[in-house]
Design a protein around this nucleic acid. Structure first.
Lengths: 99, 99
DNA sequence: TAATATTTTGGTTAATTAGACAAATGCAAA
DNA sequence: TTTGCATTTGTCTAATTAACCAAAATATTA
């Protein structure tokens, strides 16, 4: 692939996705959503020990920018990765912080 | 790898790297630096048709957050990827904006 | 030394973002 | 319908970021 072929719109969409991911809490959230896992807002807020409404905000940002999808089932809303390979991004950048 | 094992510091470093990349111009810059390519500030500013000092600013951000390295040779400063696999990030997020 | 080319830094203003809280909405069971 | 749980939305202030321009710093050449 040749990135020089990306349009301005595609560059901005890509930037928006990365901007959505580029936050410690949101990276941690993605860490829990590998391999097609689906979690509710409450589960994530308990796992990460952050305010429930703050959790919802972060999930909303990730969904809005095309990183996550959500599906309501009864009282709960389950969140999960829109593209499986988005885990690679977190994977890759994490590797860089370790080596 | 288990992201739940990442420390707060590592999460923040990862977030800072992604934040540095998460900008249309900076994604475009990384697009030109695949495969170990090295380019000068002037070359990049001409390729992207943005102000020279703006280019330097963007490169400085990428270097400061550990995405790029630089090496001065004579009058010129060459910039290049610090980790080869950082191309994967741009690659991955670009794919998501195309399919 | 002086002049030129390349790059970095600093100052400014406008725009965006984070985090907290409160209020409102959606759903299910009694 | 009323109650309670889960989630979303709105509002606010503080902090961060972008882009431009001008000035300074670094290195080469005359």
């Amino acid at each position: 692939m040749d990135f020089k072929d990306l349009t301005t719109e595609q560059l901005e969409e890509a930037a928006n996705m990365l901007k959505a991911i580029a936050h410690p809490m949101r990276i941690a959230i993605l860490g829990y959503l590998e391999d097609g896992k689906k979690l509710t807002v409450t589960e994530i807020h308990e796992l990460l020990k952050i305010e429930q409404s703050t959790t919802s905000h972060h999930l909303g940002i990730l969904k809005d920018k095309g990183v996550l999808c959500s599906k309501r089932e009864g009282k709960n809303t389950y969140y999960f990765l829109k593209h499986a390979n988005l885990s690679n991004i977190v994977n890759c950048v994490s590797k860089c912080t370790m080596g």
